[in-house]
Design a protein around this nucleic acid. Structure first.
Length: 361
DNA sequence: AATCCGGGGCC
DNA sequence: GGCCCAGGATT
């Protein structure tokens, strides 16, 4: 389909709105593709307010591709700690090293090369290409789905191949090729500030008289999704082992949550278990060998930790041992004062908060 | 096409 | 409790 004057009119209205109402965000003060890249990865499935401080800290420590590539994956994960979706950090690091090795250390400026980098899909490639070089690639993110599905009352489910294709073609038709950067930022800010998921500001919306969903009185029915998220329960039993001033960690390395992060020795069970049941499991002996821990303290009991697709019920036991069984050799033994050097999950962080609290009381 | 990957804020 | 957020990779 060819672009029409009417299509450009929508872009013009969006950009006019944007010029008056845009958010002041640090990654908009630059056209450095590296900084834009970092901001876009941080903002994947992440609200601006949640990502802002991470962006400042990350850019401060890794101001260039070179600096990021030269760092260890561990340190990069440490700067990502608590933000979630940790493959973003690992891919960021791997791509920085790729750029040093294969692109002369210069962030690539061709859309196809950008798209080929780990952790960069259609959305992020379009965002970087348009924001850094004003290249005419349309962004299609959650805001775009919402704004355009409402404006045109499009009910194709957005989580299907057909829906993704339809919305991409629509976005491609609506973008003003000579003003791609501002157009893309405008749609997203409009979606984030006016055409919001709940309680959109229809009464003050400049598109109210054009919006087919508003005319139909069912704005909140858009965008249409096919799938519902379902969740499973998991039961984690952690042991914060104290052996004099030493403790033990392991690094998660399987295809599971928190890959690359550190944690205490863990027994995962199929259902909720108490300490007596736990201590009779083979996994228990695999951690402690033939000794019995002393001073067992249940610091967190059935702590509920909700993720997107699973709910974790976690027990954290603080236990003291008098001598070290060789069974513990498979763990990383560190001095307790070094714990802060390791990237940990939010759940483990919650444990430390609780521990500090119980000390204060 | 379906599922997985975090954490937080909102109603 | 369910939904969504400047999505992408894996199966």
């Amino acid at each position: 389909m060819k672009q029409t004057d009417k299509d450009i009119e929508i872009s013009t209205m969006l950009v006019d709105w944007y010029k008056e109402n845009q958010r002041d965000l640090p990654w908009r003060q630059t056209t450095d593709p590296y900084k834009i890249w970092i901001s876009e990865i941080i903002l994947q499935q992440t609200r601006v307010v949640q990502g802002l401080d991470y962006y400042y800290r990350f850019i401060d420590r890794f101001p260039t591709v070179d600096a990021l590539a030269a760092a260890s994956e561990e340190e990069v994960l440490k700067y990502w700690q608590g933000l979630g979706y940790y493959s973003r950090a690992r891919n960021l690091h791997a791509s920085a090293q790729y750029i040093m090795l294969h692109c002369g250390g210069i962030f690539p400026s061709s859309y196809e090369t950008i798209l080929s980098l780990k952790g960069i899909g259609e959305y992020t490639a379009a965002a970087i290409a348009s924001f850094a070089w004003n290249m005419p690639y349309p962004v299609v993110d959650g805001n775009v789905y919402r704004v355009f599905s409402r404006l045109f009352a499009l009910d194709t489910p957005i989580d299907t191949g057909k829906g993704k294709k339809e919305f991409y073609e629509l976005a491609n038709m609506l973008i003003n090729p000579s003003n791609a950067s501002m157009h893309n930022q405008a749609v997203m800010d409009f979606g984030a500030l006016v055409c919001t998921p709940q309680a959109p500001s229809c009464t003050s919306c400049p598109f109210q008289h054009k919006c087919l969903a508003f005319a139909g009185g069912n704005v909140l029915d858009y965008p249409v999704k096919q799938h519902k998220t379902k969740s499973r329960n998991r039961y984690f039993n952690y042991f914060h082992i104290e052996w004099n001033d030493r403790t033990f960690l392991s690094r998660r390395d399987k295809s599971d949550i928190w890959k690359g992060l550190y944690e205490f020795p863990l027994i995962e069970t199929g259902q909720s278990v108490n300490f007596t049941e736990l201590s009779s499991l083979p996994d228990f002996k695999a951690i402690f060998g033939f000794q019995t821990p002393l001073d067992i303290m249940l610091v967190l009991n059935e702590k509920k930790h909700v993720l997107s697709h699973q709910v974790i019920y976690a027990n954290f036991y603080k236990v003291r041992i008098s001598n070290k069984d060789s069974a513990l050799d498979k763990f990383i033994e560190i001095n307790s004062s070094e714990l802060d050097n390791y990237a940990i999950s939010r759940l483990t962080h919650i444990y430390f908060d609780k521990l500090a609290e119980s000390f204060a009381n």
